[in-house]
Nucleic acid binder design. Structure first.
Lengths: 133, 133
DNA sequence: CAACGCACTTGTGCATTGCAAGCCAGCACG
DNA sequence: CGTGCTGGCTTGCAATGCACAAGTGCGTTG
């Protein structure tokens, strides 16, 4: 691997420093999605070649695991590994910042308040159940 | 502005969903840099046209403020606004994740420990003084 | 006032991305 | 068994983004 520096932020950006990767991780981590077609139908409208490339990359870097569906063997299931789940705190801080700085945010102040008052509880709930919108 | 969705993560990625923007914010927020030439000399080696474009964008979006240096009026000083400083928690979580997942990380476990045991204190210190490496 | 440094701007070529279309394997149905 | 449909990609091509090099204008310095 050809690294730009040993800064952990630079390291992280080499994984998700683009317009799509974190949205895929959001969908897997918080939105309860796990199939290719579900991931393809996000509000933002990711292109299919980009999604395929990102999933391959995330799998290769150990962020997600790919499994065959036991019911329908055409279908794949994508799941976060531990390293992937560990990105939830990053997502939470981004959501808090976005909610505080975007007038039209879909996330309200109650999420922000919970992140401030019961951060550990929130993180545990998200890791177990996702956002449950 | 042409938004992809009202998800706060998508909103945030429209600001820093690329390979360079967060590194610029890191240098301003944590590395104590404020001049164009300092920012240009990061370990990662950002190109000058990219840096100029990102600074203009960050200023327009209210993340940084551009001031003239009072000593040398050729020189500009770039400083984070409140909205910019509010990105420090995001940076911290990324650093923690990077330090935990990169074998060759330049940040050691003592940062991670402090983030777990005294998060509020760490955030206050970083906001006031940066990383002080 | 000549030379230099700072903060850019412009130009060019290559790499990455976005969008549309096509492809193939695995079901589902008759 | 054939026909069609669905899920998960792959390919082709245009558009965008990035890297590298060079040049510009203004302010400071010798």
């Amino acid at each position: 691997m050809n690294r730009r520096s040993h800064c952990p932020i630079s390291f992280a950006l080499e994984l998700f420093g683009d317009r799509w990767t974190l949205l895929v991780i959001r969908d897997l981590a918080l939105m309860g999605k796990s199939s290719y077609t579900d991931l393809l139908c996000s509000d933002e409208g990711i292109a299919t070649n980009i999604l395929a490339e990102r999933l391959a990359r995330l799998e290769q870097r150990g962020i997600i695991r790919k499994e065959r569906d036991t019911q329908d063997r055409r279908r794949s299931r994508y799941r976060l590994t531990e390293a992937g789940l560990d990105l939830i705190p990053v997502l939470v801080e981004i959501i808090v910042w976005g909610a505080n700085n975007d007038d039209e945010s879909a996330i309200g102040p109650e999420f922000v308040r919970e992140a401030e008052t019961d951060r550990a509880g929130l993180l545990a709930r998200l890791r177990a159940d996702g956002l449950q919108l």
